[in-house]
């Protein structure tokens, strides 16, 4: 489990303090700077998550399972399923993304590497953004790619499959960003899981509305570009604001 610490793939947090002391520039700025730090964080998190595959797979299995529950709980009638499919797929994907949030900062918090992240001279917001990017890459994106398959099972009308995947890809990026704020706020709490969903779910509603709306519009043949544009706008807004909130929340959770 700790094998990665000695390997080359983990330079961001462990090596830098030494770096800093050994060859810091006169102004105290370590070599490399922001780009290197963000890249290192990205690479490290990707490597770590690839080694804990179950953490990546669990949300996907959860997504498939929840989608299986609905026809059993409601009715296998394809016509009925088709009308509720956009909402079901979106809600289930949203819950799956929520499920994976708790572990976003958890292991880093427990092994102390989050504290190291706070001590780096690079802005914490950017490093947090890198971690969120990895989370989206390994949760949101797979969910988006998997959704069309589950769409078939729910008799989702043709012509909306691409929009479903695109809206989920765009939407889950916002979900990861907003959810990371909640994850950062609750990472220091021993029973943060339920609280996390209470904090985050109300903030997810706009994304859900426009995400499911996009698929609905595609089914109606109205064109979903307006919905996708709004999803993009929501993503831009969360990209601008969420990193700062994540950074502030991480500071509270660790220093407090």
């Amino acid at each position: 489990m700790f094998a990665w610490a000695g390997e080359g793939g983990m330079p961001s947090t462990e090596v830098r303090p030494g770096d800093n002391a050994a060859r810091s520039a006169p102004d105290g700025e370590p070599r490399g700077g922001l780009g290197v730090a963000v890249w290192a964080t990205l690479k490290r998190d990707l490597t770590l998550l690839m080694r804990r595959r179950s953490e990546v797979l669990n949300p996907l299995v959860f997504f498939a399972l929840v989608i299986t529950l609905f026809p059993i709980g409601i009715s296998p009638d394809p016509e009925l399923l088709a009308t509720i499919a956009p909402g079901l797929l979106w809600v289930a994907a949203l819950l799956a993304a929520l499920l994976s949030l708790d572990s976003l900062f958890r292991s880093d918090y427990e092994d102390g590497s989050l504290e190291q992240l706070l001590l780096t001279p690079q802005p914490l917001a950017m490093l947090g953004l890198a971690k969120v990017a990895v989370h989206w890459l390994l949760t949101g994106l797979p969910l988006a790619l998997m959704a069309p398959v589950l769409g078939i099972m729910l008799a989702l009308p043709a012509g909306s499959y691409l929009i479903l995947a695109v809206s989920l890809a765009l939407g889950t990026a916002s979900l990861s960003l907003i959810g990371a704020i909640g994850a950062a706020l609750t990472v220091g709490l021993s029973r943060g899981g339920v609280l996390l969903s209470l904090l985050v779910l109300p903030l997810y509603i706009p994304v859900l509305i426009f995400g499911a709306g996009a698929v609905q519009a595609a089914i109606m043949g109205d064109g979903a570009s307006a919905h996708l544009a709004i999803l993009g706008a929501l993503l831009a807004l969360s990209l601008m604001l969420a990193p700062w909130a994540i950074a502030a929340s991480l500071r509270i959770s660790i220093n407090g």
Binding site: I181, L185, L203, P206, L234, L241, A245, I252, S253, G256
Partner: peptide, 20 residues
């Protein structure tokens, strides 16, 4: 910590209220 966390959440919430 509770005070600061609640402050951050209230600010995040207030940005989201008009959007919601």
């Amino acid at each position: 910590s509770g005070s600061r966390a609640a402050s951050v959440l209230a600010m995040v919430g207030v940005i989201n209220i008009p959007i919601i």
